[in-house]
Design a protein around this nucleic acid. Structure first.
Length: 647
DNA sequence: CCCATCATGGTTTTT
DNA sequence: CCATGATGGG
């Protein structure tokens, strides 16, 4: 054994140490919530590097980029800067990194654009329009896209997915939906773009169709580590098994209890069948929980007992006994807000900082009422928002400009830019695009002039300004993306902001912040990829403001995080579990229960399950709510029942 | 014909 | 509160 073992033995418990020091070969780490999963992965990486594995021969796949960054930071503290050369990030990121080098093998230009969900939606809507389908009866773009995405992520044919999803609805035109799917795929190809799913699917296709490429990466990555393995889908798992096939040093970490992404094609059975695929796999279980009090863990254990088909694990706490979690019966949403505000104030007096507390909920709109209330009560809060920073209109406008420099066939960016001009809408922008031969080369002065000539008079002044930005950008004077953004703002966009938005100042600051942010990237392509693949979790920089604020988040976005105090909002049947999730999905209730389990296990010291009895509709209607079945299932003695007096 | 504006209806979860 | 649809104006 190497000499770092003593140091590791002091920092890790027996379960963790065994996994960290395990010899080469396939390894499955079943890590229950709060058992030091990240710590184990970080030390495993450190162990590999100490044992002489070059960092660039390690591939670390994580669920978010933030997770990868944190692990790398911590590994750096253990083994030094050298570790930075390891490849770490999400499946999408790693696939993108590989695809950029080999795109031409699959018929893509290396400068392909990555579409975000907004872009995908635009393309599908266009397809629906072009096929002249009745928009009244035809499913919404997002519904069609969900099916397309599900097909991609599970590897099933679209026809099969559509049949399964719409079998009960006779009036749905299956052939039309397939046609839309076909048109969407064609449109992406034509504009030289991949959507999120294409990155994964093409990543796998590259390996399948080009064994030489696969062999190269198989040889390069001597060790592959995967975090949150329970949330990988069929394409991701096949990709990872392929890349690890030569050295077979594949370590996966996960918890089947915390699988909450089946609607995205994730299959927790990937983790259950790992030992069938690798019969020589070593299995390590982490069951010692350092996070939560015994009382909270009892509730968590009771909750997940409702899902009998999963690996049975029992969380053991090492912490002192504290308080029973609270089951709070409240009159309505307003009283719920009041209750949470009161409790937050009380806990602050007891010494908790606001950022040590969080409110978790099933869906973003569940928290709208609470937001109003907290604002009125002047309790500062931050939301991990449903709208991604990079999907806001003003950010996308600026990105459209940059994207055209990268990919001249990017029809979405071109039409978006044109539609900023007064008097230009869908039709005109499309007409101009067609006139240009469906490509716009910023360097081409004749094209810039041609656009000006085709546009209606009202739009020409604006176009002249934008054209100047393109001209400057092509001068080869070493204009950086930040310079381009600045130029665009000065020449055109500042005026546009003020004309269109009420909060122009804020939006301007956002853009200037983004301009600074571009400086961190070596190339425009690197920046744009990052923008497309970055989640709002990743983008979040902790500010002074955060430290004084209560956190509001969906349970999904709270994955992997922890707080001393957690409030679960709307723990009522219909809201959590969400009715739609149960009715539309065979395994729906089990997944909702796992989600509830994830919510509970985020809490370290105190947990509040809030259950309003009345929900008011916008029209003033009143709905009575039952307690969540997940709360009812918990044995009475494990919760402290609080009934708020009616006010 | 095509765009802008106002009213209205209806909300899962995310790379 | 955001996206869609009807309506009026250019």
């Amino acid at each position: 054994m190497t000499d770092h073992q003593d140091m590791f033995a002091k920092a890790l418990n027996g379960e963790q140490l065994a996994a960290v020091m395990a010899p080469d070969g396939p390894i499955l780490v079943l890590a229950a919530a709060g058992t030091g999963k990240t710590r184990t992965l970080v030390y495993r990486v450190a162990h590999l590097v100490f044992s002489g594995v070059p960092p660039e021969a390690i591939l670390l796949l994580t669920f978010t980029n933030k997770a990868a960054r944190e692990m790398l930071d911590r590994a750096r503290q253990l083994v030094g800067d050298g570790v930075s050369s390891l490849w770490g990030g999400t499946f999408h990121h790693m696939a993108n990194r590989i695809l950029r080098r080999h795109a031409s093998l699959l018929g893509y230009a290396p400068d392909y654009t990555i579409l975000d969900s907004d872009d995908s939606e635009s393309l599908v809507k266009k397809a629906v329009k072009e096929l002249k389908l009745d928009t009244e009866t035809f499913p919404k773009a997002q519904v069609v896209l969900a099916a397309i995405s599900h097909a991609a992520n599970t590897g099933k044919p679209l026809r099969e997915v559509l049949t399964a999803r719409f079998q009960d609805m006779l009036d749905v035109n299956l052939e039309a939906m397939l046609a839309v799917g076909g048109r969407y795929a064609a449109a992406k190809l034509k504009m030289g773009a991949m959507d999120f799913d294409d990155l994964l699917v093409n990543g796998l296709r590259l390996f399948k169709e080009h064994p030489d490429v696969l062999r190269h990466y198989q040889g390069r990555f001597r060790h592959v580590l995967v975090d949150e393995f329970q949330d990988t889908n069929a394409v991701q798992s096949e990709w990872v098994h392929a890349i690890a096939a030569t050295h077979r040093n594949l370590l996966v970490v996960g918890d089947d209890f915390q699988s909450i992404y089946s609607w995205r094609g994730a299959d927790y059975r990937n983790i259950m069948t790992f030992k069938d695929r690798y019969t020589d796999a070593r299995i390590f279980k982490l069951e010692t929980n350092y996070r939560s009090t015994p009382e909270i863990l009892e509730v968590a254990n009771a909750c997940i007992a409702g899902n009998p088909e999963q690996f049975q694990k029992h969380l053991r706490s090492v912490r002192e006994k504290h308080l029973l979690p609270v089951s709070a019966r409240i009159r309505d949403g307003d009283a719920q807000g009041r209750y949470i505000a009161e409790q937050v104030r009380r806990l602050q007096r007891a010494g908790y900082r606001p950022d040590e507390m969080a409110v978790l909920y099933r869906a973003h709109y569940h928290a709208m009422e609470l937001q109003l209330y907290l604002t009125r009560e002047r309790i500062p809060f931050v939301i991990t928002s449903g709208i991604r920073f990079f999907e806001q209109a003003h950010i996308k406008d600026v990105c459209a400009l940059l994207r055209l420099f990268q990919n001249p066939r990017d029809s979405l960016s071109f039409t978006r830019l044109l539609e900023l001009l007064p008097g230009v809408g869908l039709r005109t922008s499309q007409k101009v695009w067609d006139k240009l031969g469906q490509s716009f080369v910023p360097q081409d002065e004749a094209q810039r002039r041609q656009v000006g000539e085709v546009l209606p008079a009202a739009a020409r002044v604006g176009w002249k300004a934008i054209a100047q930005v393109f001209e400057r950008g092509c001068e080869g004077t070493g204009m950086t993306p930040a310079d381009l953004i600045e130029e665009f703002l000065e020449k055109f966009y500042k005026g546009h902001l003020q004309r269109v938005f009420e909060n122009a100042e804020n939006r301007l600051e956002d853009i200037q912040e983004m301009a600074r942010f571009t400086g961190k990237y070596a190339t425009l392509e690197a920046f744009l990829s990052e923008v497309a693949l970055m989640t709002n979790l990743d983008a979040e920089a902790s500010t002074v403001e955060d430290r004084a604020s209560l956190r509001l988040s969906t349970v999904h976005q709270a994955k992997g995080l922890e707080w001393k105090v957690v409030f679960v909002l709307w723990a009522t049947d219909g809201m959590f579990p969400q009715t739609r999730a149960i009715t539309e999905n065979a395994d729906g209730e089990a997944e909702e229960r796992r989600l509830f389990y994830v919510a509970i296990t985020r809490a370290k010291d105190e947990l509040f399950l809030c259950q309003p009895e009345i929900r008011r509709g916008r029209d003033g209607s009143i709905n009575f709510c039952r307690q969540s079945r997940f709360v009812v299932e918990i044995p009475k003695g494990l919760l402290r029942e609080v009934r708020l007096p009616y006010l």
